[in-house]
Design a protein around this nucleic acid. Structure first.
Lengths: 207, 207, 207, 207
DNA sequence: GATGAATGAGAATTCATTCAT
DNA sequence: TATGAATGAATTCTCATTCAT
């Protein structure tokens, strides 16, 4: 018989992630340097000492938090990509819709971007790891579809095919826009995405 | 005889801008919170007290620094726009080349963007002012050319014409790329710009 | 077995009052503004940080210190008043002796007066609270005895009966004298009190 | 012909006293330590440097200010005393009325008292000088009249005759009251003085 | 495991004082 | 005489980190 997982034990197992969730909120609110671990602890419902039981330093808390919050996108993308059917154009359109939705509208994703930009100088490893685990796979996914489209004669062999990042740039812009202006300057996300897709597909199209 | 500008007076007049230049470098190096005004002072060749003679608080130093460093682009853009000749396509190409060069390659411009992303929550007025004085005029400049191209029948009336920001998004991506990876992942700026221009102009072109 | 009060716990419970005692001495020595919390800490045998663990600001330390040091007189007065016997004259004499002894000779009481005079502008609430908790009850105590004396026909209904504060004024003068001249100009406290009592009682006496 | 005193020269001669007047107001407002010489300068319509031209240090400014503001009472008292006529009782009553009016109601006199209490520890010479020049002469004036009253058989040889300060104590109390409570607890000055005089004269009277 | 009292290095800010002009 | 830019010592307050319980 497996040992009963008591509530206490369960909570214990969840502590680190509760702390990281709380840390995320506080770091979002105040930035890395201005965040007090004391506030993180309070928000997580523990005390300062407990944080130090799980994490060595404030830097470590920050790093782990970024990792913790970065893990949600990738699996979803891969699964989604497998469901794509139809022409390269249709598949690219699907990919864009999915990715834009995540990059531009997902709050956590957006704030992680802010952290990386703001504190990247202090945490270069974090940035590089993020690139490997998050950015590169997305780019690869796009590149694959585009290459297939070129091979299939749907897309012209545009120079942009060698800079797949360009395809993601409107989403990044949207994300930045949101980081900068919050709710002060709202953008019509759907219309913006539509316009971007239209421009990109026309730009890639043969003829 | 013109009144002799004494060495002391000359230095005095330059002090604030010397301090702001030093502040820029320190803020780039360490970020807002981790920058010590003492280091700014040392870099500027003065003492802490002198900074406080010219600026009330560290926040003020930061704000003034951002303003100080933001003033270089606009006049150049307007002047350049006046020299543009040829078709809307040619003019748009020129505008993109000029703007991308500034946004993506100019170090100060790029670091200002980092400051706004990182500290925008603390300085929303700064962000909004930056939008008014810096972002909006650029967008307007692009919109004007695109509208003319549409009116002249060179460009189709793409939905992207209503979201001129999209045209700038590859430049913003480049800028961010540089902020994130510094010299660790270099991008061929010229080729990237070429690819973007190609994609955009094809995307906008009639037919 | 009673729960052992550990050394640590005991010390912890006493910390705030140890800090306030130390603060009192330092504030007496240098005044509010010129007192360094660092010195208070050293005197209390702790470090700066500890003070801030218990008190938010220097102002708070000052306020709490005044409260802490103001609490000793009142209970004694009430108890003492209950032991008074004899004619109103005798009881008034007893009250005066007791009160003068406290106001004029008690060092803490005297220095609190100095603090209130010196820093009252910055801490009006402190002054008002002191009045309610300290001054008013004393005045009431005197008023009661005087009124009884008037009712009993021992005292004439002098206008001073309506300004009981007058009865305390020699004690306040003594207190001030001590604050101003310290040991440089000693006053014979007993003789002074005797003279005051003599003057007051003669002034109040019927006929 | 005497040299015309130009406005500039006249102003120059008045500078130190203008500075001391301004210093008085600032010291009243903030206390010694919290007063900024910069604010004194602004109030006096000069700059910081000018203050240092006339006074060596902030301490000197404070000391000179106290002297400057202490000089107004004495001559008036002596002149007034010379006009007193009638019985010792009448003369004492007159003296009390005059002195109380000054001590208790004169703002400058009252604030000087506050300065001496608050900063006496730092400026003992100032306190002693104030005693010699201000307090002692007043006491002497009272003692003279009281002694004359005793000699003339109007007053009994009360022990209080040896502590003339007692006679001034109600005035000091009033002054302190005002320092502590400002306008928050007003006292009927005339009635209070009447009650004090009544009590004192009855206390001193023969029979 | 968890707590929270205690530490102490560190940073922003203030302001009396100086001195070149 | 007067100015005001510049200095730098001093002080409050913060907070990551430690560790006895």
């Amino acid at each position: 018989m497996p040992p009963a997982v008591t509530k206490r034990a369960r909570r214990k197992a969840e502590r680190p992630s509760e702390i990281l969730d709380a840390a995320f909120e506080e770091f979002v609110l105040h930035g890395y340097a201005a965040t007090r671990l004391e506030d993180v602890a309070t928000r997580a419902g523990v005390t300062k000492g407990t944080i130090y039981f799980y994490f060595d330093t404030k830097e470590r808390v920050f790093e782990e938090m970024v990792r913790h919050k970065s893990q949600s996108f990738l699996p979803g993308l891969k699964d989604y990509a497998l469901t794509l059917r139809g022409s390269a154009t249709e598949r690219l359109r699907g990919l864009i819709a999915f990715t834009y939705g995540h990059i531009a509208e997902n709050r956590e994703s957006r704030e992680i971007l802010r952290f990386l930009i703001a504190e990247g100088g202090r945490f270069p490893d974090l940035v590089d790891r993020h690139y490997e685990e998050f950015v590169a796979p997305i780019i690869d996914q796009f590149r694959e579809v585009i290459d297939q489209g070129v091979a299939a004669g749907e897309f012209r062999n545009a120079p942009a095919a060698g800079f797949t990042e360009i395809v993601m740039s409107p989403a990044v812009l949207l994300s930045l826009w949101s980081l900068l202006f919050g709710t002060r300057k709202e953008v019509d996300f759907v219309a913006f995405t539509e316009a971007s897709v239209d421009l990109l597909l026309r730009g890639l199209a043969k003829d």
